[in-house]
Design a protein around this nucleic acid. Sequence first.
DNA 1: TAGCGTTATGTTTTAAAAAACATAACGATG
DNA 2: CATCGTTATGTTTTTTAAAACATAACGCTA
Lengths: 118, 118
Amino acid sequence: MTKQNFELNGRIWLEVGGEKMLGHGRVELLERIQASGSIRQAALQMKMSYKQAWDLINHINSHFKKPVVVSQRGGKGGGKAVVTADGLKLIAQFHQLHASFSDFLKQHSGEFDLTNQD
Amino acid sequence: MTKQNFELNGRIWLEVGGEKMLGHGRVELLERIQASGSIRQAALQMKMSYKQAWDLINHINSHFKKPVVVSQRGGKGGGKAVVTADGLKLIAQFHQLHASFSDFLKQHSGEFDLTNQD
DNA sequence: TAGCGTTATGTTTTAAAAAACATAACGATG
DNA sequence: CATCGTTATGTTTTTTAAAACATAACGCTA
């Protein structure tokens, strides 16, 4: 009898109007924007193009009642971006939820089993 | 104060060797194969091409130690396909797990909240 | 006031994924 | 022993998504 080796995995995310809005990747992007004060730097760190990062946060901003990132161009350093209080709240809430989800996956990871008598 | 309307959502799946192997869609495919005795009929029901369905179950079969579907061509009706005992076991185990996951999502769906004093 | 680095946005090109198409093999059955 | 409906598989085309490229706007700062 040889035992099949399984792993349980999954993803969770936040939706607004049925549209995916905030998952693991976008939360990381927000965190890096907050840490660096720059969309460009955050994008570089995550190996995505500036445009891709900008499109993402623009999409989020335009679907929430209040923006999660506010930015300005020109000035010292060329411009900057900061995560709003709401954005920070979302990051924290997502982390908390994701920790519960990780527990869930770990707790149920043994439930797949094809062991039998052969 | 206007409240942002959130929904929590997610997916879970089974992996073998880090590769996604069995999630919601493939489980449904297996069920329809079992119910109809035919890959073609299952594919039609799910509005996918026969090739796509076949590629999926072939991929699964070749990554598990024992196949989840066995099939034969020719003969009465042109051929047939049946889900193995292991396959049926996986379906059942996935359903059980997915029910727990649905509970998880429901229980935590209220954890996102941006309500504040403005 | 020219230059710098970043935000903001549109367009074009490339790559990946999906769909469509085509065809052989098979075995009961009439 | 030809037909039928399905399994099995490869190839081509289309669609979609991602990446690359290009450029304007902006406001400090030297």
